[in-house]
Amino acid sequence: MKKVYAYPKSLKRAPFHYCPGCGHSIVHRLVCEVIDEMNLQDKTIGIPPPGCSVFAYNYFDVDMAESAHGRGAAVATGAKRAFPDAIVFTYQGDGDLAAIGTAETIHAANRGEQITTIFVNNAVYGMTGGQMAPTTLVGQKTTTTPYGRDESLDGAPIKMSEILALVKGTVYIERVAVNSPDNIRKAKKAIRKAFQTQIYKLGFSMVEILSPCPTNWKMSPIESWQWVDREMTKVFPLGVIKDTTEKKDAD
């Protein structure tokens, strides 16, 4: 009988600690599938952040080094510069990448660091209990925006993919979602392309993944998947944000 699906080799057989309906476990699996298919398990170094995915190293069966909050791109830069043969990826949330780590991220991208960033955007600080993230939607209620995010006080959700697309060292950015089988397939394709970009040494690559957080959104898993489509993608439209992988001298 033909085997059509198997548990990824680089995904440890540990039960996920994530909440039911959370996107992290799907993203973990997709990254591991890509690592397996591209035969990268023995040369990959992952940089997980603080936050819900702080335990990512319990699931990824590759070398992993924890980063301080927001510093993933700087840690990855140091690792990749010192050991260019490695495939280095960061795994970061929206608070990590789009708030405290904004400077590290933009400058790593601007230098065209040969690293890949998996940016999981769930519009909320998950691990700390559902506070406002830089990507929280206007009007969205969180524990620190109990009356809804007020644009005049809190600003509007920041679009890191679009911002990062402006710097020359960024070569590939795509925004995807993991809320339906179709979107999950597209997400995997994007992750694969981002790793390929690094292998070809073309520059900085990132995949932004809209990911449901039913617990902190106070929704059922199904409602949260629908909310990604209905609300999040209006502010964060899916698709390729930048792709200059085919061009020699982009921008």
Binding site: I45, A65, F83, A103, E104, R111
Partner: peptide, 26 residues
């Protein structure tokens, strides 16, 4: 060898951390 003028002291020390993670003198 690698030299980077980092965007901040925070980034610089975290780059050192990254280099030390892979076993380099940094």
């Amino acid at each position: 060898c690698s030299f980077i003028q980092a965007e901040s002291e925070i980034s610089a020390i975290n780059m050192v951390y990254g280099a030390s993670v892979v076993g380099a003198r940094a």
